[in-house]
Each structure stands twice: as C-alpha cells, then as structure tokens.
Simulated assay, not measured.
Amino acid sequence: MAKAQNNDLIILGHTIKLGESKTIDFSIAKLYTSTKVEIPIIIERAAVPGPTVLLTAGIHGDEINGVEIVRQVIAKKINKPIIGTVICIPILNIFGFLNADRVFPDGRDLNRVFPGTKTGSLASRVAYHLTKKILPHIDYCMDFHTGGASRFNAAQVRLRPNDEELLELAKIFNPPFIVFSSNIEKSFRSTCAKMNIPIILFEGGKSLESNKHIVKHGVDGVLRMLRHFNMLSEKHLVPEIVSPAIIIEKSKWIRAQKSGLLHVKIECNKHVMKDEFLATITDPYGTMRFKVKSPNEGYIINVNHAPIVHQGDAIFHISTADAAAMPSEEDEMED
C-alpha cells in the first residue's frame, strides 16, 4: 500500500495535492555571509494515487555523476508520473557541492551520521530532517553515488546479501553489475532499510567528473524502475535489457605492493584471468618497474586513476568466487 495514496502530501510544512507540482526549498543553515543555503526538493504528483519514489544524489558534494542523473530525469520530465509521486533531490550536500568537496564544512560525512540529531552537527541536522520529514512518506528510494577520491567505479547497484526484494528490483534497474555489500551503520542506506524502504544504491564513475556512459546507465535504470511501478508515461522510451546484470557476491581489493607512479593497463568492467597483467608501478627515476597481476579470475569493478600511489593503496577491486567478506574494506566500497 503506497504511503501517500489517498491523502495530501505534507512535507516541511508544505501541502502538495494529487496532480500538483511543487518545488520546496529545504533550508537548514546559512553561509558565514548570512546567505541562505537551500536544498531544492522537486515534487511531481500525478492525479492518480500510487507509490512515492524518492531520487537522491549529492550526499557527497563532489559526486557529480549522481547529480547529473537526477538532473536529466527532471529535464526530460521522466519525473512526471502518471500515477503516484516522484520526489527529486539532486543535491543533498549543497555545502560540499559549493566547495567541490565530499564532506560538510565541519568535516562530517553526511553518509555516516544518519539518522541524525536535531541539535547535532550541521551534517547531522540535515540527516535528521531528511529522516524525520521526508522518508516517512517514501515507498521506494534510488540514491546515486560515484567512487571516492580517484577510484572509478563500474556502473553497479549495491545491496545487502540475502535481500530478495532488493535483488529483484536491482535486476529491473539492470546495471552492468550487482554487488553484494553489507549496509554500513549510520549510512542513508542503512536508515532506509531500518524504515523498511527498499533502496537502490547506484554507483558509477569517480568524483569531480561527469561521465556520459555512467549517467546513461543511471537514467536508464530510473526509466525501468518507474515503468515497473506503472508510473512512467508512455512517451518515454525504455531501453530493453540486452543482457542481465552480472551478480558479484564476493570481491576483494588488489593493493599496491610498491609506492610510485601507477600506470593502469586495463579498463574498468573488464573480465580478467588469473595472473593477467593489470598495471605497472614505477619510481620517478627509471630504476624500478613492478608488474601488478590479477590474483584470480574475475571482473574489475573499480580502478584507481590516481597517477601516484603509496604501498597498500587500493588500486583495483575485483570479483572473486572465494574471497571472504572484509568488513574493514567497506569504507572504500561504500560512497
């Protein structure tokens, strides 16, 4: 049963009736100059009741691909449903977006402070209002991210293991990869799960970069999801599923064994064999050249694009049939 099927939708003191469109400015704090910083929330309601779907991006201010995915959904009017409600928040961390930075001005990661507190840090207050004022109205969520730092993620949906409902939704979204990844405490994904809101977490590309191929995967996934919910207008063409997503149940990081200049020799998404040549690490003086080889057969789902690395840095993320789950690695997986 959709949460807002038969009632007016009331968010942050604003009432949105069936058939109405409204943009609400979600304002938490000001800049030092007393300039207001507002988070636009774009709400589109059909005249016919139905599910309420939330699309979010920019939880990390430097993750541009997600912002562009939600922007295109709005610009192409994909967010105007024929039943139900679509709520779009293209940039949750406006402060980080203004600074081209992952975190809030106080150094807090918004995706590590959910469900937040009313009187806590700035990031915690944003998380609190999102959790208390918006999420109770939501039936489904799609949250868009990119790889952190210089790490480029293959287009993928992440979900916790043994969640059959989410797995079926992820297959409908149809990214190239579906990656099993446990929920992290105090993340947005974890909070949605505790509130029984199915959430599709899409990852693709890297921070401070807009990649048209990654963006297309995200927009196509939104189209497929809204069609599945019978919310999508017939004027929108939905790309057919050419091949099913590759499901990755276990994976591990390949780490630099030397410090130096990194020269990557393969593309992300590639299927590699055991001992296949992946990269070289050299010193700046031409005296050292170390070959990085694949420890096993698998799919490369993340590549470090940094030109220099230190010993121990994560340089590739590879699927594996026999790798145990590595909780200490989750921060590098989850963005």
Results as ranks from 00 to 15, higher is better:
2 A>W: 07
2 A>K: 08
3 K>Q: 06
5 Q>I: 14
5 Q>A: 15
10 I>F: 07
11 I>M: 08
13 G>V: 02
15 T>R: 04
20 E>Q: 13
20 E>I: 09
21 S>N: 15
27 S>K: 10
32 Y>N: 14
33 T>S: 09
35 T>R: 12
36 K>M: 13
44 E>T: 12
46 A>L: 08
46 A>E: 10
57 A>V: 11
62 D>K: 03
63 E>I: 06
77 K>I: 09
77 K>G: 15
78 I>S: 02
78 I>R: 00
80 K>S: 15
83 I>V: 15
85 T>V: 09
86 V>I: 09
86 V>R: 02
90 P>D: 08
93 N>H: 12
93 N>Q: 11
94 I>K: 12
96 G>Y: 08
99 N>D: 10
103 V>I: 15
106 D>L: 12
112 R>I: 04
114 F>D: 02
114 F>P: 10
116 G>R: 07
117 T>S: 15
124 S>L: 05
127 A>V: 14
128 Y>C: 14
129 H>C: 10
129 H>Q: 15
131 T>H: 14
135 L>R: 11
135 L>Y: 05
141 C>N: 12
142 M>S: 11
143 D>C: 15
146 T>A: 07
147 G>W: 00
147 G>I: 00
147 G>T: 04
148 G>P: 00
150 S>R: 06
154 A>L: 02
154 A>C: 09
155 A>C: 12
156 Q>S: 06
156 Q>F: 09
156 Q>L: 09
158 R>T: 09
161 P>G: 04
162 N>G: 08
163 D>N: 06
163 D>Q: 04
164 E>N: 07
165 E>W: 12
168 E>C: 14
172 I>L: 07
173 F>T: 02
175 P>G: 07
177 F>C: 06
178 I>S: 01
182 S>L: 05
182 S>D: 07
183 N>H: 05
186 K>Y: 14
186 K>M: 11
187 S>P: 09
190 S>P: 09
195 M>G: 04
200 I>K: 01
202 F>L: 01
203 E>A: 03
204 G>A: 13
207 S>F: 08
209 E>G: 06
210 S>C: 09
212 K>L: 13
215 V>I: 11
215 V>K: 01
217 H>A: 11
218 G>P: 03
219 V>G: 03
221 G>L: 02
226 L>M: 02
226 L>K: 01
229 F>V: 05
230 N>H: 13
230 N>T: 10
234 E>D: 15
236 H>G: 05
240 E>D: 10
240 E>R: 15
242 V>F: 14
243 S>T: 13
250 K>E: 01
253 W>K: 06
265 K>T: 00
272 V>T: 04
273 M>G: 12
277 F>K: 00
278 L>F: 01
280 T>G: 06
280 T>F: 00
281 I>V: 03
288 M>R: 07
289 R>E: 09
289 R>S: 12
292 V>Y: 07
293 K>E: 10
293 K>H: 14
294 S>I: 01
294 S>A: 08
297 E>T: 09
298 G>D: 00
298 G>M: 04
298 G>T: 01
305 H>D: 05
308 I>A: 13
309 V>I: 11
310 H>E: 12
315 I>M: 07
321 A>H: 08
329 E>L: 08
332 E>M: 14
